[in-house]
Amino acid sequence: MAPILDVRDLRVEFPTRRGTLTALDGVSFAIEPGEVLGVVGESGAGKSMTGAAIIGLLEPPGRIAGGQILLNGRRIDNLPHEQMRRIRGREIGAIFQDPLTTLNPLYTVGDQLIETMQTHLDLSGGEARQRAIGWLEMVGIPAAAQRVDSYPHEFSGGMRQRVVIALALCAEPKLVVADEPTTALDVSIQAQIIALLKRLAREKGTAMMLVTHDMGVIAETADRVAVMYAGRIAEIGPVREVVKDPRHPYSTGLMASIPPLDRRVEHLAQIDGAMPRLSAIPPGCAFNPRCPHVFDRCRVERPELLETGATRAACWLYDPASEKQAPEALRHG
């Protein structure tokens, strides 16, 4: 199947007075119809930046300095502002973390849904209103026919995020970029929203990029996962393999440092140090100063994504030509 979104070798730079910072470097991935790609990583890894680059909302002075973004086979990274604006909403829907800042407080949720649909679809006012009510029902808002005329402040946080989801999906985009859609919500509400997103992606055949720092959300929702570190993809593969049997030493450390709910451990695995600042990304592999398996090659040469098992990891341990090979512990979970 042809992918809906195809990101090739994406590079985003921020020119500053003290030199150019590279926020994303050589990021490549694709998402197929109906597929949910999870993007995880710690703060500053570039996951939200990747989403922003795709929807064309990079904060200036950030700019795409290399690579391509293809939506349904068509390049969208170099489109003029006006054309990109028409694609947003119609072809790409966006869900952000904070539902309160996403909604306009001065319009009823119905007006916002109707405006979005009429901008992008050829609908009469009556039809649009009917559909707006239909969408509110679909995202699980009780008494949708009455609530359609309510203002955002009359909804609770979880209900508002449902409205935002309806808003992102109402023009029936082919791709949805969801940036931390459940982070601002309480756990009991989180589960409801995750279930909803998953169902809608499947039913509508929408491709979804789900950016989050919560591995549990990814494990429950995503089909494939990309683990990001310092603006690069460290590992990408099917969710089961990346979570249960990660190959990149960073993914391994990341999964091990998540406190388990089903038992108490005396000493949690920790990755010493912190992610490098963008101004000081080390040469070679960005993870090499923190890596327990580091060897000479990692310090000079940047690793490509290499096939290993079911996933691909940017790690020299998986290059048969390297002088050091992955230890058994890494190869088999």
Partner: peptide, 24 residues
Amino acid sequence: RALMEAIPDLDMTGRQRVPVGGEV
């Protein structure tokens, strides 16, 4: 019990979660 049930986990049993209905 509902709170523990609602936490997304890494188990990927594919089980259907029964979210706590309603809000605080």
